[in-house]
Amino acid sequence: MFVQLSAGTSHTCGVKVDQTLACWGAFRGAPGGLYQQVSAGSAHTCALTEHGTVVCWGDNAFGKCRHPGGADFVQVAAGGTFSCALRRNGLAQCWGDDSLGQASPPEGVQFRQIDASPTGHACGVTVAAAAVTGKSGSKSGNGGGGDVVCWGRNFDGEAAPRAGPFRQVSCGAYSTCAISAVDDTAACWGATRTSSRGPFYELVIAHAHACGIGADGGLQCWGSASGAERVPDGFQVA
Rank of each mutant, 00 (worst) to 15 (best):
F27H: 15
R167S: 04
G134E: 10
A116E: 09
R87H: 12
G29P: 00
T119G: 00
G70M: 06
F200G: 04
A103S: 15
S99R: 15
G80M: 03
E107N: 14
A186C: 00
A215L: 14
Q75C: 08
G227F: 08
Y174A: 12
G212I: 01
L5K: 11
G96F: 10
L219N: 07
S226C: 03
L86R: 11
F27V: 13
E202P: 00
G52W: 13
P199G: 02
G144Y: 11
G134L: 09
Q19C: 03
T45M: 01
C46L: 08
A206T: 11
A30G: 10
A215S: 14
C23N: 09
F200E: 07
D97H: 14
W189Q: 10
M1H: 03
C13M: 03
T45P: 08
N154C: 04
W222I: 01
V38W: 05
Q93Y: 09
A77H: 03
V132D: 13
A61D: 13
D183T: 06
H209E: 14
R197L: 13
A186E: 12
A191T: 02
R197T: 15
V127D: 06
S117Q: 05
G70R: 13
S104T: 14
G218A: 14
G172E: 13
G144M: 10
A206N: 08
S175M: 02
G32L: 03
A186W: 01
F200K: 05
M1G: 12
L203R: 11
R66P: 03
W222K: 00
G79R: 09
I213G: 05
A78T: 08
V109Y: 10
A206F: 12
G101I: 00
K16P: 01
V169R: 07
F73I: 04
Q36E: 09
A103W: 04
M1L: 09
A206L: 04
A78P: 11
T12M: 09
E158A: 05
A181C: 01
V132M: 03
S195Q: 11
N154K: 08
A210F: 01
A228N: 04
R193Y: 08
V38L: 06
A85K: 07
Y201I: 07
T53G: 15
D72K: 11
H11V: 04
P31A: 05
